[in-house]
């Protein structure tokens, strides 16, 4: 049976990890390699690493940094930020990324989604969709780390991403980001029910019950969280224990020595 993934998101800016609220008011939360080492040791399900200043600064992904991260990361790693060309994707996959996340380029040039999917397979293309709530039933997608309005609705854009070959969507509510008051369940559900590819809920997790809601009500396939893991005592491992209690299938890590000889 497929397990629900709980994914810590690492946001990188100016040589360190940061976390903000509503894509603003950034606080430094430590060194990236240290965080990756800890998450690897704790055997989290997956990591998402987003370089949130690359596009704004007009630079490419930091390939050598990703190489260093991958050295410590024997788990799935999604890397985003500053990806603009097929060569960027080739290099990221080569140094150890498993999936790439694209945001601005996917809006500016949607056919890029198709180029990546055709070359490397849909499974490695994550489109990161950031959006704001305009009014109670209207939402708008933003590109450029939440700086630029696009005129697109999340559902519309999600469908387009799927059609072009995206393998997964990382759906982030900018309004809820860092607030720790829960995910935007309504928009999440609308998008998740519109597409047949997995949707990762992002933006707003403050406790484990929020994750349960994102899965049950929001119909997400996986849940991402940052502030909750950076600023509270709650850990991915405890999140899994809670979800398991709620009958949600999660991967429970057995301690060393539980394996039996099968050879």
């Amino acid at each position: 049976m497929l397990k629900v993934r709980i994914i810590p998101t690492l946001l990188y800016k100016n040589f360190g990890l940061v976390k903000g609220t509503a894509f603003n008011s950034w606080r430094r939360v430590g060194g990236v390699l240290q965080a990756v080492k800890v998450y690897n040791l704790r055997e989290v399900d997956e990591l998402i690493f987003l370089d949130i200043s690359a596009t704004l600064e007009g630079r490419s992904p930091d390939f050598s940094l990703i190489d260093d991260i991958a050295d410590e990361c024997f788990m799935p790693l999604t890397v985003g930020g500053g990806i603009r060309t097929l060569d960027d994707v080739t290099r990221l996959l080569k140094v150890g990324a498993d999936k790439i996340a694209i945001n601005t380029i996917a809006v500016e040039n949607p056919s890029f989604i198709q180029s990546v999917a055709d070359t490397f397979g849909s499974q490695c293309v994550v489109v990161s969709i950031d959006y704001v709530r305009v009014d109670s039933n209207r939402h708008e997608v933003y590109s450029h780390s939440g700086r630029k309005a696009t005129g697109l609705s999340p559902e519309q854009f999600a469908m387009e991403c799927e059609r072009l070959g995206a393998g997964e969507l990382l759906l982030t509510s900018i309004d809820n980001d860092g607030m720790m008051n829960g995910y935007d369940l309504e928009c999440l559900r609308r998008v998740a029910e519109t597409v047949s590819i997995p949707v990762i809920a992002s933006g707003g997790a403050g406790n484990f019950q929020h994750m349960v809601e994102a899965l049950h009500v929001g119909k997400a396939s996986a849940v991402a969280a940052a502030s909750m893991f950076h600023f509270t005592e709650q850990t991915p491992l405890e999140a899994k224990a809670y979800l398991k209690m709620k009958d949600i299938p999660v991967r429970i890590i057995n301690e060393m020595g539980s394996g039996h000889a099968s050879c």
């Binding site: 993934r5 499974q123 396939s221």
Partner: peptide
């Protein structure tokens, strides 16, 4: 959902 992504 396809692709099948995650731990199984």
């Amino acid at each position: 959902k396809i692709p099948h992504i995650g731990w199984n």
